[in-house]
C-alpha cells in the first residue's frame, strides 16, 4: 500500500508540475495584455504534435524534435496573437471568443491531418527503475519529467525577477502607460510575453504527451481547463500561488484516484474549485480589489 501511495504521489507531483506550467502560461498573457488567451490549450497540442511531425519526416532524434515542437508552438502562438488578438484592440470578451475560435480551428486542422486517432509518443530514453528504500521505486523518466517541469518553473521565476526583459514584462503587467513613459517598448514586451507563454505551452504539451505516452488533437481542452481552474483558485496574476495550487491539485487528484477510483478525479478538482470560490471569491492568493470583471 505504501509504495502504491508513493507512486501516486509522484504521479500527482508530475501532473501538478505540468498544470503549473499551463497556468503560468495563462498568467503571462493575462499579465502583459490583460486578456485571456483561450487558444493556450490548442498551442500545447500543436507543440506535442510538432515532435511527432519531425519523427514523421524521418528525423529520428528526440531532442531535435523537442526543439522543433517548442519552436512550432511558439510560431503558432505568435500567429494567434497577430490574427486573433491584436486586431481586436483589447476588447476582452471578443478576444476570448476569437482565441477560442482559433483553438477550434487548430484542433480540427490537426484532426484532419492525423485522422483524430491518439498517436503513440516516443520516449526520451529507456525507462530504468531505481530502488530508493525497500519497495519504493522510481523510474528515470519520472524523475526527468519532474526535474524538467520544476526546472522550467524556477527558470521562469528567475527570468521574470532578474533579467531586463523579464522586468519589462512585470512593469507592463503593472501599468502599461507608465512603462511606456520610462522607455519600455510596450508592444514588443506584449509580443515577448505571448511568445514565452506559447513556448511554455509547447513544453507543457510535450511533457504531458511523454507522461501519458500518447497525444491526440483535443488534449489541449482538458489541460487548458485544468490550467484555468488553477489560475482562478490561485488568484489571477500570482505566479508562486499558481505553483503551490497546481502541485496540491495534482497530488489531491491522484490521491482521490486511490480513495475512490478514477471517476472521482475531476469531481474532486471541480468541487475544490467551487468551494474555494465560495469561501474566497478572489482566489486563495488573489488581491481583494480584483473582481474578474476585467478579464
Amino acid at each position: 500500500m505504501a509504495e502504491y501511495l508513493f507512486e501516486q504521489f509522484l504521479i500527482g507531483i508530475s501532473t501538478g508540475a505540468i498544470y503549473a506550467i499551463v497556468a503560468i502560461g495563462y498568467n503571462l498573457v493575462f499579465g502583459v495584455m490583460n486578456v485571456l488567451n483561450l487558444s493556450h490549450g490548442a498551442v500545447m497540442m500543436v507543440g506535442s504534435f510538432g515532435v511527432l511531425l519531425l519523427f514523421y519526416l524521418g528525423i529520428d532524434n528526440f531532442w531535435l524534435a523537442v526543439a522543433f515542437g517548442i519552436a512550432l508552438a511558439l510560431v503558432t502562438g505568435l500567429l494567434v496573437e497577430r490574427i486573433a488578438v491584436r486586431p481586436l484592440k483589447g476588447n476582452w470578451w471578443n478576444i476570448k471568443v476569437a482565441t477560442l475560435g482559433a483553438a477550434m480551428f487548430l484542433e480540427n486542422f490537426v484532426t484532419r491531418l492525423t485522422d483524430g486517432r491518439p498517436m503513440p509518443y516516443p520516449r526520451p530514453f529507456k525507462p530504468v527503475y531505481y530502488t530508493i528504500v525497500g519497495d519504493f521505486e522510481v523510474s528515470n523518466v519520472q524523475l526527468f519529467l519532474i526535474a524538467c517541469s520544476l526546472g522550467l518553473m524556477v527558470a521562469m521565476m528567475l527570468f521574470l525577477r532578474h533579467t531586463t526583459p523579464g522586468k519589462a514584462i512585470r512593469v507592463v503587467a503593472q501599468n502599461p502607460d507608465l512603462a511606456q513613459c520610462v522607455g519600455v517598448n510596450v508592444q514588443q514586451t506584449m509580443v515577448l510575453g505571448f511568445a514565452l507563454s506559447a513556448a511554455l505551452a509547447g513544453c507543457a504539451g510535450i511533457l504531458n504527451a511523454v507522461t501519458f505516452g500518447s497525444t491526440y488533437p483535443f488534449v489541449g481542452q482538458f489541460l487548458g481547463l485544468k490550467g484555468l481552474v488553477i489560475l482562478i483558485v490561485a488568484g489571477i496574476g500570482n505566479v508562486r500561488g499558481c505553483l503551490i495550487v497546481a502541485l496540491v491539485l495534482g497530488v489531491l487528484e491522484s490521491f482521490s484516484v486511490v480513495a475512490g477510483g478514477s471517476q472521482y478525479r475531476d469531481l474532486v478538482a471541480y468541487s475544490a474549485l467551487v468551494l474555494t470560490l465560495l469561501v474566497r471569491p478572489h482566489g486563495l492568493f488573489g488581491e481583494e480589489g480584483r473582481t474578474g470583471r476585467e478579464i
Binding site: L228, I232, Y270, S271, L277, G283
Partner: peptide, 25 residues
C-alpha cells in the same frame, strides 16, 4: 451573488463539471 465577470464564468463552469461527475458516478 458572490462572483462576477470571469470568476462567475469559471465558477459556473466548475459547477457544471461537478454535476457531470455526479451523474457519471
Amino acid at each position: 451573488w458572490r462572483l462576477s465577470g470571469f470568476y462567475l464564468a469559471i465558477g459556473t463552469f466548475a459547477f457544471g463539471e461537478m454535476m457531470i461527475n455526479i451523474w457519471l458516478t
